[in-house]
């Protein structure tokens, strides 16, 4: 912006005036003194205005910073709300979709030989939940869901993430678990739910059980590309339904088979019964002998 177009045009004119006086000062002391007094008055005013402008400018900046902070906080609150299930307060499916890619990338970037770098997906479903809703009504169903999610959450490690997958189905995502953790966690969840007394108001108590299916990513650690994370969730879900068909109040874990298929890749259409028959997978279950499982 040219000085002539600036909001400081009046001040620039005074400067030019001062420069003219300096170039050709009045010869008489009184004339010089008068000019000096005028310039001093202008300087005093300029200083006063500078002080005011600085104070007002600081105020405007404070206001903008405050507005920005308010917006950031509101954004964080909205983001948190959009990732949270309103009823149970646990994370929702959107949260999983948002963080899963970076988790998978992190797992794959680690050397599989160096420690446990994996993701365990554990799908849990409350048995006969429809009956709870039908018999006692949805408000009681909601009470059960809230207590159930608290129970599951307390049984998990802090680093595990509990997601309400939909309805009465929950998903636990566990990072870097060792070989024994999946079955231990599944059994802990199964028995704690089985032994829990759900309070449903008016002094009434309800007993529930749950069924669990789980599988880990990468499924075959030497071949992490064989099944993607969403296929592992699908596997856990199918295992959960095998647990249901096999009598409920049970868990079924899917583990890699003996890998006798040298040079072959597993079928992409996920059908656990077939994968089991063709020995791509094997099962571990709370029911004892996997041969007793019902598909």
């Amino acid at each position: 912006m040219k000085p002539s177009e600036s909001v400081f045009q009046p001040e620039l004119e005074i400067l030019r005036l001062a420069e003219v006086i300096c170039e050709k000062p009045p010869e008489q002391f009184d004339d010089l003194h008068r000019e000096y007094l005028i310039l001093t008055r202008h300087y005093a005013k300029l200083l006063k205005n500078t002080i005011k402008l600085t104070a007002v400018g600081d105020g405007a900046q404070r206001k903008l910073v405050r507005a920005r902070n308010d917006l950031l906080q509101a954004k964080a609150r909205l983001e948190d709300a959009s990732f949270t299930d309103a009823l149970t307060g646990v994370r929702n499916r959107r949260f999983l979709l948002d963080f899963i890619d970076s988790e998978v990338k992190s797992v794959l970037s680690h050397d599989s030989e160096a420690g446990d770098h994996n993701l365990l997906f554990l799908m849990i479903d409350i048995d006969h939940f429809k009956q709870v809703n039908d018999t006692y009504g949805h408000p009681v169903g909601d009470l059960v869901l809230v207590q159930f999610s608290k129970l599951v959450s307390a049984a998990c490690r802090k680093s595990d993430t509990l997601v309400r997958w939909g309805g009465e189905e929950f998903l636990v995502v566990c990072r870097d678990s060792d070989d024994t953790y999946p079955a231990k966690l599944a059994e802990r969840l199964r028995s704690q739910v089985d032994n829990h007394e759900f309070t449903i108001g008016e002094g009434r108590i309800l007993r529930c059980s749950c069924s669990i299916g789980f599988a880990g990513f990468p499924f075959y650690p030497p071949f992490p590309g064989y099944f993607g994370w969403s296929q592992i969730i699908e596997m856990a879900d199918q295992a959960l339904y095998i647990a249901k068909k096999s009598g409920r109040n049970a868990w079924v874990g899917v583990q890699p088979g003996a890998l006798v298929h040298h040079g072959e890749t597993p079928p992409t259409d996920l059908h656990l019964a077939r994968l089991y028959r063709e020995k791509w997978v094997q099962f571990k279950t709370s029911l004892g002998d996997p041969a007793q499982l019902v598909f």
Binding site: V7, F8, N49, K52, L53, V56, G57, A60, K63, L64
Partner: peptide, 11 residues
């Protein structure tokens, strides 16, 4: 809200 140039104009 007003920026610094506007403050100068208000002055």
């Amino acid at each position: 809200y007003f920026n610094s140039s506007s403050s100068k104009c208000l002055l």
